[in-house]
């Protein structure tokens, strides 16, 4: 999953905060600064788990403070799911 796919999902699942440019360089911007609280992250990771048929651990979701960290967790999970298949 790349940043664009993640921001598209964020937009669909949780909307966009006023004055936030999700198309900008947001890879290392904390979710807090992007206007997303823990419930917004829970909502988007729930949709990702469902649509990509992966299981992210609760801890990793809680630790994913920026898009870069979350994408790393997701992609790790995706490649191990692929390897297992």
């Amino acid at each position: 999953m790349n940043l664009k796919e993640l921001t598209t999902l964020l937009r669909e699942c949780a909307g966009v905060g006023e004055g936030i440019d999700l198309d900008g360089d947001v890879l290392d911007v904390p979710f807090d600064d992007l206007g997303y609280d823990s419930l917004a992250i829970l909502q988007v990771t729930g949709v990702i788990e469902r649509d990509y048929q992966i299981q992210l651990s609760d801890d990793t979701v809680a630790e994913a403070s920026t898009p870069r960290v979350l994408l790393e967790f997701i992609n790790e999970c995706l490649s191990s799911a692929k390897a297992a298949a």
């Binding site: 699942c13 949780a14 909307g15 905060g17 006023e18 206007g35 419930l39």
Partner: peptide
Amino acid sequence: IPSRLLPQ
């Protein structure tokens, strides 16, 4: 309603 509040 602001975008962030629409889904919730």
